[in-house]
Nucleic acid binder design. Structure first.
Lengths: 123, 123
DNA sequence: CCCAGACATAGACGTTTGTCAATGTCCAGG
DNA sequence: CCTGGACATTGACAAACGTCTATGTCTGGG
């Protein structure tokens, strides 16, 4: 830490002071948790595969085989995506159908571009 | 896996077949690696703090104190962000100045919304 | 009533990640 | 030169993560 605090202006400062307010630690923690949900190759492919279906809806059995992973692993990743508010689970009969939450990915992307919290769009 | 392969149409299918091509494993791996760089509370705050400066430029000494972390830890996170193509490092004299790469965050966000690789905008 | 199949959960294990203390490197001043 | 300060690098360690096997739960059919 440079001794930039309460010193006369003769002291050298390495950079200019901030003009805007930086992100809060709490906001960063919430955003990071949501980003962690999609910062995984398998989960990105799962999202893509669900989106590639006709009604943006797919069941586990169709998602397991193309990934080359076991069923419990796929189930685990799907749970992470559901908990992050990116997918919805709908169990009809024996099968569980997963669908994209409309606008969830877009609101996440919007936070990155605007550098604004946009707390209202959170889960 | 359901026995949906090479069976007559009398077999029940859990969901409709995909209409579009899902994301490649390689594309998912590259995207996930870039997302991992920003899927961390400390790094999100670092990006925000750099962006909050006047010229979108800041040195390590100004970033360490508000985070409450040690200097090597901050240096490590900055390295991750530089490697991910989100920040640039400019060492002038004794100090190292970090600046946002214009459009880097936006191109990352654009991939999420469009669900398209957009490889041309990669690092 | 029992069985088979679809999916979830629990526990275990190797790998990755975030953090720190200690040390190295480079630049500017005296 | 030699010293102090800014930053990077290394090594170590605990926590978190991704994956698997084994098992549980629930539903529909015979």
């Amino acid at each position: 830490m440079t001794t930039r605090t309460e010193l006369p202006s003769t002291e050298v400062a390495c950079c200019a002071p901030p003009t805007r307010e930086p992100m809060t630690a709490e906001t960063a923690a919430v955003l990071a948790q949501r980003l962690k949900a999609i910062a995984d190759p398998t989960r990105l492919r799962l999202l893509s595969m669900v989106a590639a279906h006709e009604n943006a809806e797919a069941c586990v059995c169709d998602l397991t085989e193309p990934l080359g992973l076991t069923q419990p692993t796929v189930s685990h990743h799907l749970r992470v995506l559901v908990d992050a508010g990116l997918l919805t689970r709908d169990k009809r009969g024996v099968w569980a159908y997963f669908a994209l939450v409309p606008g969830a990915l877009d609101s996440l992307a919007a936070v990155l571009t605007s550098q604004q919290p946009a707390e209202g769009a959170a889960v």
